[in-house]
Design a protein around this nucleic acid. Structure first.
Length: 331
DNA sequence: TTGGGTGGGCTTAGCACACC
DNA sequence: GGTGTGCTAAGCCCACCCAA
């Protein structure tokens, strides 16, 4: 069913049908009513590809994420999709995986779909390979990285200030009398590296220790279990430890369980802090004090920047949002 | 087998024309 | 002159046809 079919049945031209669909003036009332009735009768929807062809605009944004099962990223994509929908854009979400070749393939796929812009979700896209792929395939197409940045004219980045946020977490623990914190990390990502830097800087600044302990989890192992096991091992290897900062709430959730199973009193013996201020922080018992990296605000800002760029407005290429701490029972 | 030309697919914007 | 309508080109990609 095309506008020609509607036009034929209504006894008018396709132009008249198009005017009715687009609510343009200059259509006789009787014809307008007749065409509208037929559009309703056949539940007619204009062909988006053809419309995109003539308007030079597909109204489609590509969202790329490494692993859609990562709830933090999935939630970010949800907020972005909802915000973009308000401006009439639809989204194609692609699960790219972590390998460079798979990511390059995903970027090419989105380009072939003639998306108007691309959102890269997560700091892991902040890499030389992604930069090369953007230069090679997306010349001039707006790209925005959620919690990351690449120095290219068509790339925009909105970042959460997690480095200073984690430093604030260390200071909070210090005010609670905690002098032997440990950082548990999983995944060598730019975001996590900044968290570690924030952790180490704050401890040096407070003159607590010169080489603050950072424990790296094995990324080959199942995430929850590896955090659980590492926490129990910490209790044996670092008997002085009085607090743990986990790179995410999910890791902290596993850690809390390990501490409880070992009979450790939280927060008196060991205080716990997570990152993301996610559902895991809220449902955990005790509730997890968490660094709120403002996911919703971050995602909506990404969407708004993209819309502005697509509308031809000038915007800053890099923007930083401040994180803050949501205190719960774990500290 | 390869390369070039052509038309189909669908919608919209702009222009031309008829009519009152 | 204003209103209502139709014709046509444009947009891009692909399949198909024909000639070399």
């Amino acid at each position: 069913m095309t506008i020609y079919d509607i036009a034929q049945e209504a006894g008018v031209s396709a132009s008249t049908v198009s005017r009715v669909i687009n609510k343009k003036k200059g259509v006789n009332k009787q014809n307008r009513i007749l065409v509208e009735a037929l559009l309703k009768k056949y539940n007619f929807e204009p062909n988006a590809s053809a419309r995109g062809l003539v308007q030079q605009s597909t109204k489609i944004i590509g969202i790329l994420m490494s692993d859609i099962r990562t709830s933090h990223h999935a939630e970010g994509a949800y907020f972005m999709e909802q915000e973009l929908k308000k401006y009439g854009y639809n989204c194609i979400i692609i699960n790219s995986g972590f390998s460079d070749s798979a990511r390059e393939e995903s970027i090419r796929t989105l380009f072939s779909r003639r998306v108007e812009a691309i959102v890269l979700v997560g700091s892991t896209f902040q890499s030389e390979n992604t930069k090369r792929a953007i230069q090679e395939y997306l010349n001039g197409l707006p790209v925005i990285i959620e919690n990351g940045y690449i120095n290219l004219p068509n790339v925009y980045g909105v970042l959460a200030d997690e480095q200073n946020g984690i430093s604030d977490c260390v200071r909070l623990l210090h005010t609670k009398g905690k002098r032997h914190p440990v950082f548990i990390n999983r995944g060598d990502t730019p975001s996590n590296n900044l968290k570690i830097l924030g952790f180490q800087n704050a401890l040096k600044e407070l003159s607590v220790c010169e080489n603050p302990p950072v424990l790296w989890l094995d990324i080959e192992k199942e995430e929850w279990q590896s955090s659980y096991d590492a926490t129990q091992k910490l209790l044996k290897d670092f008997p002085d430890m009085d607090s743990i900062i986990y790179a995410t709430d999910f890791l902290a959730h596993a850690g809390i369980q390990a501490l409880k199973d070992a009979g450790v009193c939280i927060p008196d013996q060991v205080a716990v802090i997570g990152v993301d201020n996610s559902t895991y922080a809220r449902i955990s018992s005790p509730g997890i004090t968490s660094l709120d990296n403002k996911l919703e605000q971050l995602s909506i800002t990404c969407a708004d920047i993209l819309v502005k760029v697509l509308q031809g407005e000038k915007v800053a290429n890099k923007m930083m949002l401040f994180s803050d701490i949501v205190e719960r029972e774990s500290t």
